[in-house]
Design a protein around this nucleic acid. Structure first.
Length: 653
RNA sequence: GCUGGCGUAGCUCAACGGUAGAGCACCUGUUUUGUAAACAGGGGGUUACGGGUUCAAAUCCCGUCGCCAGCUCCA
C-alpha cells in the first residue's frame, strides 16, 4: 500500500482517536470502512462511532450480510438477491428452493447469526475486475447477483466475512463482533427488482441497533404504536366498522360520523374564508364522460363500472349472436354496453359544470369545492383500514384560473395546508413534487409547463421539497403533502396539482378582458386529502384523544346515585341547547365504574353530580387532558369552558 | 393481483382429532353508591362459508370470502 493512501484505521491510530467503538470513518461526506485506503492525501477524518446516527445503516447492512450467510449455511441452495439497510432496519431477499421461511426458521437463523457474530470475523473489502467477479458469481451459482453486476458501472467490489462473499459496495463494520443487537422481525414476498412480472423472492426483515438497549427501546416503541393503530382504536371507541360484504369500505358509526362531519364542517368554514363555493355533483355518469376525461383509457382498472338490466341483456344478446373471438373481445363487448361508470374523481364533473356556462375572466379564479363520494376499485392486497379504501370523500376542490393566477393560488394553498395541519397539531408535512408518470395524457410541452408551475409555486414559498420522479397523476403533476401514521408509514394527505390537460380535453374557455376566448388552467387540490385517510391518521396522531372541538362526546355527566339522575338529565339538556355534545350515564353502576367507562371512551370532560352539585346547580368537572379534577363549576361556567374549545384553534375568536 | 400468516360469543382469548369454554360486554334482580371495575343470576356459538378425509373435525385436506404483514399499485 502506498504511503499516500492510508486507511482510516491508520490515520485514527496516529491521531490516537481509534477507540474500539469506531465503526467507520467519514471523509468529505463519504463513508469508508476502517480498512479501506482513503483518497490520496487525506489527512483529516471523522470517526463514526457506534452511537453516531451514521453508524446505524452500516451496522444494519452488515447484519444483513450476516443473516444471508446464516441463511445460506442453514438452507443450502438458497440464492441471494438484494439486502440493503432501510429506514427501520434491513432486509435480504432470497430465492429458496423449498419456498418460504417459517417462524422457526427465523429463530434458527438468529442462532446461526449469533455464532457468526461470535466468531469475530473481519469484514474485508476487495476490488475485483468485472470478468473475475462474473466468474466468481457464476461459480457460486448466484444468478441474481450476476444479473445485477451486468447492470453496474464503475469499480466493482466484494465483501467477505469468514468464508462468505457478497457483491457489495459497502461500507461495513470492521468485524462481526460489532453487531451487538439485532432481531429478525418478519418475512414477506417481494418481486425481484420490484417488478411484478418477475419471480417472487422471499424477503426476511430484521432490525439492528448499536446496543441491546436501543433495540429494546425500538421494539417497545413498535408495541406502543400498535396500540394506537386506528383500526384497533377506531373499533374500541366505536367510531368505525367494517363488514365483509363491503370490503375496504368503512362504516362510520354515529360517533365516528360526528367526527367525520366535524372535519368537513371545519373545512367548510375555511372555504367561506378562502373564496370557495361548494357544489354537489352526480355519482354515476355515462362513460362518455370518462372517455373525454381520459379516465377510461388511463384509469380503467381502478373504476367501478355500472350496468342496468337492459345493458346486461344487450351485452348478452350480442355475445350470443356474435360470439367474440377471445376474452379481450368479450370484455370489449361488455364494457361497450355497460354504459355507466361510478366516479373515481370529481374533476370530470367539475369540468362539465364549468363548461355549462359562458365564463368571464371576472369569475376567475373560480374555486369549486365538492365532498362527493368517490369509488375506486383497489386490488384486494392493497386496502388497509381507513388509509386505503374503495370508497371515500375528499375535501376536494378545483380552481379554474388564468396562467398568471397559478402561482398565487399555489402559495395561498400552501399557507392553508400549513394552517390546517397546525390546527390538528401535526408536524409540518413532508412535501414532494410528483412529476409525469409513464401512463399519462397530454403532450410533454404541457407537462413541462405544469411541472414548472408547481416547482415555481412551491419554491416561491421557500418550503423544502423533494422530487418524486414519475409519481404524478395521469393528467398532471402533483405537490403532495405527506404525514406518517403510528407505525411510521407515510401517507399522502393534501395535494395540489396543476392540470393543463383536462381544460383542453373538455375544451373549456373563458372570455378575457380583450373579449377573446382563453383556456383556463385547472388546479386540483385537497387539504385533508381523503377524509377517510385523514381520519385514520388523525386517530393515531391523537391516540383516540380527540380534542373537544372534534370529540363525538364532549362531556359525560355521571351521577353519584340515582337520586341525582333528574338533575343530570336537566343539566345535559341545558348544555346541549348551547350546542355542546353531552351525554348522561344513569346506569345502575357505582361512580368509579361510570368514570372508568367515560375515561375509556376518551371523553374530554366528565361531570360528576351528587347532592352538592344539585344544590349549587353545577358539576364537579374532570378534565381528560389535565388528567385532574378541576373543581366545581356552575353549568354556565361549564358551558363557557367547553364552548371555548368548541371550534378549531385557528377559528376561535 | 402476488407471497406468507390468520379467521372460535359483541370484544380479548382458551380448547388443537373425542361433550365448544373463560373474562369483559349484554339482559334481569339486589345494592343507592363521591373520581379507573359492587354482588348474584341469565341469555348468547351450524367454530367465516362450501366441499372432502375419518367411527368421530373448531382441530387434518381442498376451494371461496374476509382480515393481517409485506411486494406491486395509490388519496
Amino acid at each position: 500500500m502506498d504511503q499516500q493512501r492510508r486507511t482510516g484505521r491508520q490515520l485514527l491510530a496516529e491521531q490516537e482517536k481509534l477507540g474500539n467503538d469506531v465503526v467507520a470513518v467519514e471523509v468529505g461526506g463519504q463513508v469508508f470502512d476502517l480498512h479501506t485506503p482513503l483518497p490520496e492525501g487525506t489527512s483529516e477524518v471523522r470517526a463514526i462511532r457506534q452511537n453516531d446516527p451514521k453508524a446505524l445503516p452500516i451496522i444494519r447492512h452488515s447484519t444483513a450480510h450476516v443473516m444471508a450467510d446464516a441463511v445460506q449455511k442453514l438452507f443450502p441452495g438458497t440464492k441471494v438477491a438484494f439486502g440493503p439497510a432501510t429506514e427501520a432496519g434491513f432486509f435480504y431477499d432470497y430465492d429458496r428452493p423449498g419456498g418460504s421461511f417459517s417462524e422457526a426458521d427465523l429463530e434458527a437463523i438468529e442462532q446461526k447469526m449469533l455464532e457468526i457474530i461470535e466468531s469475530d470475523s473481519p469484514f474485508v473489502r476487495e476490488p475485483m475486475a468485472r470478468e473475475d467477479l462474473m466468474a466468481l458469481l457464476s461459480s457460486m451459482n448466484e444468478p441474481y447477483k450476476l444479473e445485477h453486476v451486468q447492470r453496474l458501472e464503475g469499480e466493482l467490489t466484494i465483501y467477505r466475512h469468514g468464508d462468505w462473499v457478497d457483491l457489495c459496495e459497502g461500507p461495513h463494520v470492521p468485524s462481526t463482533r460489532f453487531l451487538k443487537a439485532f432481531k429478525l422481525t418478519h418475512t414477506a414476498g417481494a418481486y425481484w427488482r420490484g417488478d411484478e412480472r418477475n419471480p417472487m423472492l422471499q424477503r426476511i426483515y430484521g432490525t439492528a441497533f448499536a446496543s441491546p438497549k436501543d433495540l429494546k427501546a425500538h421494539l417497545k416503541a413498535l408495541e406502543e404504536a400498535k396500540l394506537r393503530d386506528h383500526r384497533k382504536v377506531g373499533k374500541e371507541l366505536d367510531l368505525i366498522a367494517f363488514h365483509p360484504l363491503a370490503p375496504a369500505s368503512p362504516f362510520f358509526t354515529a360517533r365516528g360520523a360526528r367526527i367525520y362531519n366535524a372535519l368537513c364542517d371545519y373545512v367548510r368554514e375555511l372555504y367561506d374564508r378562502h373564496g370557495y363555493e361548494e357544489v354537489i355533483t352526480p355519482q354515476v355518469f355515462d362513460n362518455e364522460l370518462f372517455e373525454t376525461s381520459g379516465h377510461l383509457p388511463a384509469y380503467y382498472e381502478n373504476m367501478f363500472l355500472a350496468a342496468s338490466k337492459e345493458h346486461l341483456e344487450k351485452a348478452a344478446k350480442e355475445i350470443v349472436e356474435k360470439p367474440p373471438a377471445d376474452v379481450h373481445a368479450c370484455e370489449h363487448v361488455m364494457t361497450e354496453h355497460f354504459r355507466f361508470g361510478v366516479k373515481p374523481m370529481n374533476c370530470p364533473s367539475h369540468c362539465l359544470l364549468f363548461g355549462m356556462k359562458r365564463r368571464s375572466y371576472r369569475e376567475l379564479p373560480l374555486r369549486i369545492a365538492d365532498f362527493g363520494r368517490l369509488h375506486r376499485y383497489e386490488r384486494s392486497g392493497v386496502v388497509q383500514g381507513l388509509t386505503r379504501v374503495r370508497t371515500f370523500a375528499q375535501d376536494d376542490a378545483h380552481i379554474f384560473c388564468t396562467q398568471e393566477q397559478v402561482s398565487g393560488e399555489i402559495a395561498d394553498f400552501i399557507d392553508l395546508v400549513h394552517r390546517v395541519y397546525e390546527d390538528f397539531a401535526f408536524q409540518a408535512p413532508k412535501i414532494y413534487i410528483a412529476t409525469r408518470p409513464d401512463k399519462r395524457i397530454g403532450d410533454d410541452a404541457v407537462w413541462d409547463a405544469a411541472e414548472k408551475a408547481l416547482i415555481d409555486g412551491v419554491s416561491a414559498k421557500g418550503v423544502p421539497f423533494e422530487i418524486a420522479e414519475g409519481e404524478g397523476a395521469f393528467y398532471g403533476p402533483k405537490v403532495e403533502f405527506h404525514l406518517k401514521d403510528a407505525l411510521g408509514r407515510s401517507w399522502q394527505l393534501g395535494t395540489i396539482q396543476a392540470d393543463f390537460n383536462l381544460p383542453e380535453r373538455f375544451d373549456l374557455s373563458y372570455v378575457g378582458a380583450n373579449n377573446e376566448s382563453h383556456r383556463p388552467v385547472m388546479l386540483h387540490r385537497a387539504v385533508l386529502g381523503s377524509v377517510e385517510r385523514f381520519f385514520g391518521v388523525l386517530i393515531e396522531h391523537v391516540g383516540g384523544n380527540f380534542p373537544t372541538w372534534l370529540a363525538p362526546e364532549q362531556l359525560t355527566i355521571v351521577t353519584v346515585a340515582s337520586d341525582f339522575d333528574a338533575f343530570a338529565v336537566e343539566a345535559a339538556k341545558e348544555l346541549r341547547r348551547k350546542g355542546l355534545r353531552v351525554s348522561v350515564d344513569t346506569s345502575n353502576e357505582r361512580l368509579g365504574a361510570k368514570i372508568r367507562a367515560a375515561r375509556l371512551m376518551r371523553v374530554p370532560y366528565i361531570g360528576v353530580v351528587g347532592a352538592k352539585e344539585v344544590e349549587g346547580r353545577g358539576l364537579q368537572l374532570r378534565s381528560r387532558d389535565l388528567n385532574a379534577d378541576v373543581g366545581f363549576s356552575t353549568l354556565d361556567e361549564v358551558a363557557a369552558r367547553l364552548l371555548a374549545e368548541h371550534r378549531a384553534p385557528s377559528l376561535r375568536d
